[in-house]
Structures are given as C-alpha cells and as structure tokens.
C-alpha cells in the first residue's frame, strides 16, 4: 500500500521529494557535476603559456595523451596506461587469492569472534593511507631487514632495496584494498551452504575441484562486489604509486595529476581525466554486466 500516505496530494509529494533530496542533489550538481563538465570541456581547449586552458578549441590534448609530442610519437603514455592496467589486474588477482582463505577462515570462527576478526582486517585501512605507504617505505627501503633478505635471495639489488619499485606499488595496492575484498567475500561465505561443499568434497575429492564446483559459484556475488570495490579505485590510485613507485612506476592518476601540479598543462591533464572517467565507467559497466550474466548482479552494490 502507499507509503506516501495521509492527505498528501501528488503535488505535495513532489514538494516533499524536492525539499528532502533537492539540497543534496543541488550540492553534488554544483560542486561535482559542474566541475567535472568544466574539466571535460577543458580537454578541448588549447594549452596557454602558463598552463591555463585557452581558446581556440583543439584536440591537441588528446594527441598529446596518445603520445604525439614535439619529437613525434613516443610510447611513454601508452606504457603508463598499460602499466596502470597491469598493476590493477595483478594486484586485484593477488588480493582475491589472499582474501578467499581469509574470508573463509573468518566465517568458520565463533560468531562473537568474527566481529573481532573482521575489525582486525579493517582497522589498518582506517589509518591514513599516506602513513600506511610511509610504513612500507620504511620497511622496504635499502638496508632494512626485508630488503637485505630479498637481496640475499637475489630478488633485489642491495643498493636499491625493494623500494621504490613496481613490486612496492603492487604490494601497496594489495595492502590498501585487501579489506574491501575480504568484507564482501566474508558475507558471501556467511551465507554459504556448507552441505554443498561437503557434497562436492564427496563427489570430486580434490579441494581445488570442490572449490570450483561448490564455493566459487556461491561466493560469486561477493567476489564481484569485491572486484568493483578493489579494481575501480586501484586503477585511479594516486598516493601509492607516487610514494612507493618513486617516479618509475607511475600510474595514470599520477600522469594526470602531474599536469596540474608541476607540468601545468591543464588541457592535457583534462584529457587524461576523461580517460580515467571512461575507464571507471567502463569497468563498472563490465562488472555489472558480468554480474547479471552470472546471476549475482543484485548483490553488486554499485
């Protein structure tokens, strides 16, 4: 029956909708939608002398983004894009591998203990991400026990240590996003029908086959939600590559930010922002589609 009840006519219901949601909608429109549109439009302007966008309209910024500069085409930006994708996919895969057993293990604990365990997983992500990256810098710098061990094993050179490096960036990404994979997977495990797993262990014997036959299909909604929560922000990450990559492991977010800070080429940076936005929307769209096709779409929040 109607929730918009009482002697409220249709008109006053609309008024109610307006005064409750209007201020927020106006706020987001004014302070995020308009700025984004401005940024998007900026990509079609010319780069002025001081890095400020100017008329006339041009697509120079997109040419630049594609790698065409004064000296002809260079693959630098393409590499950055591919590197971003590679870091994102690789660290997401690692996150999934770590999160699955953790989520399962938490779901096997006593209910009162589960709260504590979940909190233990989440608490590090409540600390400031700059501090967390700084912690890793301290751990991985040349001369630290971990770096020394790595160089002794032949995994890193003694002078350079493990940081700054691609390895440090991916480690930082996994570290950052692990809780966002554990939480949705845990809630999937909580609902998991264990009799199916037992039946699967009976029928297929090998744990790996049991995983693919019984666990994966049932935890798929959680996995997809986790992928949305990990992949999308990982791709746009700024702090981790900036601090742990040391300039050699730049991701797309750093490329864009540089154009507004040191580089001062706003149209070029704006073109990069468009690329990031497009990638984000594409990612969400793909994951939602995948979710629907696999029948777990409803639980994918975004």
């Amino acid at each position: 029956m109607s929730n918009i009840s009482s002697p409220a006519s249709r008109g006053s219901a609309v008024l109610h909708l307006l005064w409750t949601t209007g201020p927020s909608a106006a706020w987001i429109t004014l302070f995020l939608v308009l700025p984004s549109l401005y940024l998007v439009s900026m990509a079609f302007l010319t780069n002025g002398t001081y890095g400020q966008p100017e008329m006339p309209l041009s697509v120079d910024s997109f040419r630049q983004l594609a790698g065409y500069g004064f000296l002809g085409w260079s693959p630098g930006n393409l590499y950055t894009l591919l590197r971003s994708l590679y870091y994102t996919l690789f660290s997401t895969a690692l996150t999934v591998l770590v999160a699955y057993p953790i989520a399962y293990y938490i779901s096997t604990a006593r209910p009162s203990l589960r709260v504590v365990m979940l909190l233990a997983i989440v608490v590090p992500s409540w600390t400031n991400q700059v501090i967390r990256a700084f912690g890793w810098m301290n751990l991985l710098a040349p001369g630290t026990p971990i770096s020394t061990l790595a160089s002794w094993l032949g995994l890193a050179s003694p002078e350079l240590g493990l940081y700054p490096s691609s390895f440090a960036v991916m480690l930082g990404l996994v570290y950052n996003f692990l809780p966002f994979m554990v939480l949705p997977l845990y809630s999937a495990f909580e609902k998991l029908d264990m009799s199916q797993l037992e039946a699967a262990r009976d029928l297929y014997a090998s744990p790996l086959r049991a995983f693919f036959a019984a666990i994966l299909p049932q935890t798929l909604p959680g996995l997809l939600a986790g992928l949305v929560l990990v992949m999308i922000p990982a791709f746009g990450m700024y702090v981790v590559p900036e601090l742990l990559g040391g300039g050699r492991a730049m991701m797309i977010g750093n490329l864009v930010a540089t154009q507004f800070a040191d580089g001062s080429n706003w149209p070029y940076g704006a073109a990069g922002s468009i690329l990031m936005l497009a990638a984000t929307l594409l990612g969400i769209w793909l994951l939602r589609r995948l979710g629907r096709r696999l029948g777990g779409g409803e639980e994918v929040v975004i």
Partner: peptide, 23 residues
Amino acid sequence: LIVLIYLPIVMPDVVFGISDMTF
C-alpha cells in the same frame, strides 16, 4: 538521483580533486 549519489563514490579521487580545483 541514484547516479548523482553514486558519482562521488565511484569517481577516482584524483579526477574528483582536480575537477573541483580547476572549477
């Protein structure tokens, strides 16, 4: 309205910050 509400959540921080800064 749903799109508006999710926009700040899904937009990459860098793009969010730069949009507002330039604006």
